[in-house]
């Protein structure tokens, strides 16, 4: 699972089967709870400054066929996704 910045809009060419993004976070879903666990934070600004490279060199290319689902990510939104609890009878 990746959270990142898309650097350009997708091309509508059918043969274009990849999407590139600058990663900001990566993680996985817990097997048991299916909750999202972030494992890595990518401090790309510091990396770019240290290595003196262009941001394009850090682009992550993902085949579209590998993407199961996608959504816009809003920082801090996960605190509003609460575990479901059955309503108590009155």
């Amino acid at each position: 699972m990746y959270v990142g910045h898309l650097t350009e809009s997708p091309n509508l060419k059918p043969e274009n089967q990849f999407v590139s993004l600058l990663p900001a976070l990566s993680g996985h879903r817990d097997d048991k709870t299916l909750g999202v666990k972030f494992d890595l934070i990518y401090d790309l600004e510091a990396l770019i400054a240290k290595l003196n490279i262009e941001a394009e060199e850090l682009l992550l290319t993902i085949p579209l066929s590998e993407i199961k689902s996608a959504s816009l990510y809003h920082l801090g939104s996960e605190e509003f996704f609460l575990p479901y609890t059955s309503p108590q009878p009155p």
Partner: peptide, 9 residues
């Protein structure tokens, strides 16, 4: 899906 990627970009 493309519309979503486009919006993000």
């Amino acid at each position: 899906f493309f519309q979503l990627l486009h919006r993000a970009a």
